[in-house]
């Protein structure tokens, strides 16, 4: 479905990715794990084709979605036309809009009627009942966990088929984190394809079907979650012995 091929990416003069390749098939959960600065977020931003100043410039390689290169696609079209959604690191919700406004904003480019929007809204509220309770509150007043729910809900509102999650566990209490992953797993069973970037390798490998390990801008290991969990070098570097 989504394939990244020999991707080289630069920020100014610094090359951040030196030939990253991986694939994501429909219905899969794939994780990219690795330490700080490995290039995980850069990879996601490259897929989303984000504009400056976040823009990583692709110097070599290709990103293909259903076989076609998406390097020339504008970011808002990546969301709308290709149906790839991003839950960014640090959530980046709109604090001075209400929860409901945040969610409806994601239907921004959709031309369909408000009944369909209402239906999607209902679905998100079903997944995250907390958001329903707080739908009229300003998003700033939500707790960290609720904000993460809102960020995921917002991505779902854009009717994406693939969701890219950037550090969904960051700043969440363990219980909330497990809740979040359980909901995501449920969404995956309903057909959502998930690419998740995590520093918390243990949780990520428990959650994903397959994984890639990144280090300083390159993929250093890949395999199913079980294989990676058993890999001695991955164990040593990322799973604490």
């Amino acid at each position: 479905m989504l394939s990244v091929e020999n991707l080289h990416v630069r920020y100014g003069n610094i090359e951040a990715l030196h030939g990253v390749s991986f694939t994501l098939e429909r219905g899969e959960i794939v994780t990219l794990i690795g330490a700080n600065g490995a290039g995980k977020t850069t990879t996601l931003h490259s897929i989303m084709r984000l504009p400056p100043p976040e823009a990583p410039r692709v110097t070599q390689g290709d990103i293909r979605f259903e076989g076609a290169s998406i390097l020339g696609v504008e970011p808002h079209d990546v969301v709308r036309r290709l149906g790839i959604g991003l839950v960014p690191e640090g959530r980046r919700i709109f604090g001075n809009l209400t929860v409901q406004e945040n969610l409806t904003l994601a239907t921004y480019a959709r031309k369909d009627d408000s009944a369909a929007v209402q239906q999607d809204l209902g679905r998100v509220f079903e997944l995250f009942p907390r958001l329903k309770e707080r739908q009229r509150q300003l998003a700033d007043s939500l707790s960290g966990g609720e904000q993460q729910m809102l960020a995921v809900g917002r991505a779902l509102m854009s009717r994406c088929e693939v969701i890219l999650l950037d550090e969904p566990s960051m700043g969440l209490a363990p219980l909330l984190m497990f809740d979040m992953f359980r909901t995501l797993k449920h969404l995956n069973e309903e057909g959502l394809t998930i690419l998740v970037v995590e520093q918390n390798a243990k949780v990520a490998l428990d959650f994903a079907h397959r994984g890639y390990v990144m280090d300083t801008g390159a993929i250093v290991a890949e395999g199913t979650s079980a294989e990676l969990r058993a890999d001695p070098s991955v164990k040593k570097a990322y799973l604490g012995g």
């Binding site: 984000l50 808002h76 969301v79 959604g85 904003l105 994601a106 480019a109």
Partner: peptide, 13 residues
């Protein structure tokens, strides 16, 4: 609020 977040909400900034 956040231009990047706007883009990923499919807003043609």
């Amino acid at each position: 609020q956040d231009e990047i977040a706007a883009e990923i909400m499919s807003v043609n900034t």
